[in-house]
Structure formats: structure tokens, C-alpha cells
Nucleic acid binder design. Structure first.
Lengths: 349, 349
DNA sequence: CTGAAAGCGCTTACAG
DNA sequence: CTGAAAGCGCTTACAG
């Protein structure tokens, strides 16, 4: 039951150096204030004693005594290290590790949180959340209750991805989908497209709403038509609209949907981009349809994760009532990938 | 500086329920021994009070009071979450996460450890090692001093990969390369090969020694010739030995070397496996040479990592002087992938 | 059955 | 300049 590790304590160091335990603590933490001034001789004696021993401060005790731990909790609503999730989580984890190394902090993954209704629970009887100085939350969708409670308790945390599930002001670092979406629509316009179709899955997330709103706003600004259409299992009705000449370009809400559309178009004898152009409003790296690079976005996921870790550090070092002083809701912009599936419409050639 | 999180403590729960703080602790930990018997009525009252509050036990305090934390440290000598290392670490991390979830423990990644001479240091002034109940060590090569110190201090840990850098008895979970190597040589023999060549990089690791020793031993048992050759930058001398008919099959120490050999053979006009057979003594999943599945091993890395986590749990729950009672050095066997690059020698056809 | 007390290892006012 | 003491939140003998 008990890890019978004989560990050296400050008390023993104190005895070795012939000083009080308080002094050892002072030396270790470089406390040299107005009321404390430790002569170099003493300081040296203590340091030597520490070096000769295998002393390391007990982080649990430090934490209990009120110091921060340099431990950031990482909570993911799904398993993050499984092969299937690596596509999404991989770049995020890379950014977290890189930023953590720089900030000299350790990462505590809450892998123990019990899974209920398909996702992990953040708060449960034995949560080790409190052991961390702060926490980064990851996941496609999050629990509004969790977010609110974290805000209420003033616990420093940052969500990855834009959040508005809750009334509370949730600190987050997300992706600026609006500006990239605008960029992509502009490119389509520049190539001569005047009639498009925005195809989506009718899901409701902040990022999804951002994209839809920007499509509508860009279309209005440019004076062109880009109505919406919801993709069901059967994509044939959408393909029909392209065949009818209703749209010369498809904007797909995400990359998987874009690939599905590409297949459906191909099966109906329509070629991309000769007959219809196609672009995805998501990360297209590594995605190729019919030998062509898919047009879409490059999303700086690694940078987003690193920024989230940096932000949570700022929150930790700031009293909760001063959080409003910094930008706790950040959107990072990626770049538009022109790709090869967005070309001029046939009528322009 | 201080995360001013208002947190609920046992004391407050006690007041709410009108009992002592001790009783709250007893209820929380289900302590119902000889001297303690808490009536259901009291128990219920306390439980209700807890549910109405947002109480969660402070893990730092629990740890300090001597309980275990259900936190396992993960130490990697290189960055584990970078894209380049995912190939090697990915399956290991998957196994760790899976086993951690099952064992209900959290994973503390020591990402803060300073990098010196190209690899991270485990022991340093501020190491949070002690916060974990035990630790899993990962890395292509490890520091013998670290291993010895961990053993000395009786800290529960398990290395992934076979270790013999040190005299101390290091707990590990590794790969049984010997049995897989024997299997591969047997297959070559069965296909009619009598003269082989074992090509390696002359590196010195337990796993490398295992493979070399087994090659020699298998050859002796079967009464065939499989001499060794060290691969330099220029592989031409090795190719020449195939051309001279010195060897009908190449065994490469690892998969990358096998691919290099394949290219060198190809450039010299030798075809695999028509002119020479080729097999890698490493994981071949996803590796294809000239359109053919490389012959070699499938290594159960996910299982190895999960086993390591399970083993460290056992160590944690056992007093250090009883560690010898369990198998602290385990080798897991993978399977031989026959592949398409190991065929009968030309002389047999 | 239940509570007051000691102790885990550390930090930080507070007195000398 | 330095140490005795209180306190962080919890667990566990030990007395009632």
C-alpha cells in the first residue's frame, strides 16, 4: 500500500548543516527579503548538504503550503492517445508538450476520469484537478456545466476551441474560421464563381456557426448566391443541384464531408474541378481527392495548443479578479490552401 | 501567484452535517474497521452534505497524509509527443492511456525536465517524481545512473524495454526478440536458405545483443552459416557478397536498415526476393519495399506499455522487500510477419 | 460510535 | 540573521 520510499526531508538537511529547517526552506526558495538575510556562509553550508544528499522537495507539501506546482492538468473528453484520435489530438499534444517544456511545467493527463455517456467526467469524487495549478480542456464538444463550475470556482483553465455553451466568460484559444472562410469565398469569387452551395451537417458548435455566418456575410458582401444545404446520408440531391447548374462550387463544412461529396460527384460522372469546384472549410493537409490537393485551410493546431498553455500560465499568475485585464478569449488565424479543386467555372473557360 | 480558488474542505462539510471532520474523512474513505462503526444515519447525513457541496478531496493533502494518489509518472528521455517520435511512442502512449483508464489512474508527464546533452534529466532540484506513486520510463536508451538511483531508493518504477545497463535489478517489460528472431531464421531455413548474412549497425543495446546472439545460436542449431557484417554508410560491400553468392538471404537488424539494403540491392540490379531474400528484425507494419510487404516482426508495443503500467501498479502495492516475489522482468513476444521479401532461394526453384 | 490530537513536509509571518 | 510556531487539508491511531 505504502510506497516505502525513504525520502530525505528538509529536517535532515537542517541537521546535517546545523541550521533550522526554516533556514533550509529559505535557501531553497531563495527567499531574501527585508526581514531575511542569510549570510553566504550559511547558505553555502546548506547548499552543500543538499547536494550531498538526494533531497528533492515534496511537491505535495509545497502545494499544500500554498505554492504553485508547475503542473498543468490536461483534460480531454475523449481518449487522446488512441490511434484514431491522433489525427485531431496529435498536433495539439505536440504544441502542449513544446510549450510545457519551455514553461518548465509538467503535464498531468486526467486519464482516470470515469467515462459516462460516451465522454469523460471532469468533476468526480476523486478528481485530481486540484493538484494542478491550472488546466487545459480539449475536446470536440465540452460540458457546459463543467465550464461554468470552473469559472465559478475561479480555477485557472483554458479551453481549446471557441466556446459559448455557457453564459460564463470562458477563457479559450480557438481558430479564426471566419477570416479563413472569407478568404476562401473571395478566392472562389475571383475565379469567377457566382453561384455556390454551402453543405453542412447541421451540427451546432461555435465554430460551425462561425463558418455559416461568414459564408452568408461574404455572399452578401460580394453580391453572390451561396445558399445552405444540409447533407443527409444520401448526397444525390446535392449532386443533382450541381448537375442542374444551380452551383458551380461546393463549400463543405469539413474535410470529411468534402471527401464524401467528391466521391458522390465522381459516381455521378461529374469531375472536380472541371465540372464543379470543391473546397473544405477545414484542415486539408494530407487530403487528396482524385489525385488533387483539396482546397481548404491549414489550421495551426500546434500553435493553438501552445497558446492555450501560455494563457493558462498567465491566469495562474494573476488573481482571478484581474483576469479581465488580459485577453482571455483568443482566436488564431490559419492560412487558406488554394489547392487544386477550386478552379474557374466551366462557363469562364 | 496564488490560485485563489475557494475550495470546500472537509471541515465545512463537517459543520454542514454536524459531525467532526474525522467522521467526514471516515465516511469518504469507507473506513469501517474494528474500532469504527458509523451508523447509516450519520453516514447518510454526511453523504448528503458532500453531494450538496462541490467538495473534492485535495490530492496534495491526501498524498501528504500517506495515501497513494493513483498518479503514475511518465518519463521519456526524448520529447514523446512530437510528430517525429509518434512512430515509436504512439503505440506505447496508446497502451499507457488504455491501461491507466482501466486502473483509474492519472498520468503525469515530466515534460519539464531540463534537457542536457540531448536528453532529459530525471533527477533535478525540482523534480515532481515524488508526486507520482510510481513511474514508467520510456526511451531508446536510458541513463544507468538514474536506474540505479531509483532502485536504491526503492521507488516503484518500470522501464519499457529490456535493460541491463546496470548491476541493479531493474524492473522492465521488453520485447522477446530472441524467440521472434529464431522464428524468422527457421522460416528462412524451411524455404531452403543455407547461407545468410546478418547486417547490423554495431550498436550496443540489450535488444541488439539479443538479436545477434539468437542469430548465432539459431545458425549453430540448424547447422547453417549466418555470419555478421557491420553496415557502413556505403552498403556496396554487402551487396557484393550477395552478388558473389555468399548469402541468399539478408537479415537486417532493423527495418530502416532493411529498407536501405533494399535500395542498395535494387541499384545494383539485384531483385528482392528473386535474387536475394530480405527480412527485418523489427516492426514492419506499413513498410513496403518495391511493392512487397517486408518480412519481419509485429511488435506488440501497445501491450508492452500496458503491461508496464500494470507492473508498476503491482510494485506500488507491494513493499519493496517483496518485489522479488513477482516477475519484475518481463519479455512479451510478438509475431513473425512472413511477408513477401523472404522467398525460396533461386537455387531451389 | 465519535472527536481531539498528532503528524505528513513544506512555507511564511512573527518573535527574538 | 535565525528559529519556534502556525497552518495548508487530510488520515489515522488513540481516547473517550
Amino acid at each position: 500500500m505504502s510506497p516505502k520510499t525513504r525520502k530525505v526531508t528538509q529536517k535532515e538537511i537542517a541537521q546535517l548543516a546545523g541550521v533550522s529547517q526554516t533556514t533550509v526552506s529559505m535557501v531553497l526558495n531563495d527567499r531574501d527579503g527585508t526581514n531575511v538575510r542569510i549570510p553566504d556562509a550559511t547558505r553555502e553550508r546548506v547548499k552543500r548538504a543538499i547536494e550531498q544528499s538526494t533531497y528533492v522537495a515534496d511537491p505535495a507539501a509545497r502545494r499544500l503550503a500554498g505554492l504553485d506546482n508547475k503542473i498543468i492538468g490536461i483534460f480531454t473528453y475523449e481518449p487522446a492517445l488512441s490511434p484514431e484520435s491522433m489525427d485531431f489530438y496529435g498536433p495539439l499534444l505536440t504544441g502542449l508538450e513544446r510549450a510545457a517544456e519551455e514553461a518548465q511545467c509538467d503535464l498531468l493527463f486526467f486519464t482516470s476520469s470515469p467515462v459516462e455517456e460516451g465522454r469523460r467526467r471532469l468533476f468526480h469524487r476523486q478528481t485530481r484537478l486540484r493538484l494542478a495549478d491550472g488546466c487545459v480542456l480539449l475536446g470536440q464538444s465540452m460540458d457546459g456545466g463543467d465550464l461554468e463550475r470552473l469559472v465559478d470556482e475561479g480555477f485557472p483553465f483554458v479551453a481549446v476551441g471557441r466556446r459559448d455553451e455557457t453564459a460564463a466568460r470562458v477563457p479559450y484559444v480557438g481558430i479564426d474560421y471566419a477570416s479563413m472562410t472569407a478568404g476562401l469565398v473571395d478566392q472562389a469569387y475571383a475565379r469567377g464563381h457566382r453561384r455556390g452551395l454551402y453543405v453542412h451537417r447541421d451540427t451546432d458548435s461555435p465554430a460551425a456557426r462561425d463558418r455559416r455566418a461568414q459564408i452568408a456575410s461574404s455572399a452578401a458582401t460580394l453580391g453572390i448566391q451561396i445558399p445552405e444545404a444540409v447533407a443527409r446520408d444520401d448526397l444525390a440531391p446535392l449532386v443533382a443541384r450541381a448537375q442542374a447548374g444551380d452551383a458551380t462550387v461546393f463549400f463543405a463544412e469539413d474535410t470529411f464531408l468534402a471527401e464524401d461529396l467528391a466521391h458522390a460527384l465522381h459516381r455521378s460522372g461529374l469531375s472536380v474541378p472541371d465540372d464543379v469546384s470543391l473546397a473544405a472549410l477545414g484542415e486539408v493537409r494530407g487530403h487528396v481527392v482524385a489525385g488533387r490537393t483539396l482546397s481548404g485551410f491549414h489550421i495551426p493546431r500546434t500553435r493553438v495548443a501552445a497558446a492555450a498553455l501560455d494563457l493558462v500560465q498567465s491566469l495562474i499568475h494573476l488573481p482571478a479578479d484581474e483576469w479581465s485585464a488580459i485577453e482571455v478569449q483568443q482566436l488564431l488565424s490559419g492560412t487558406v490552401e488554394p489547392g487544386d479543386t477550386l478552379a474557374s467555372p466551366a462557363s469562364e473557360r
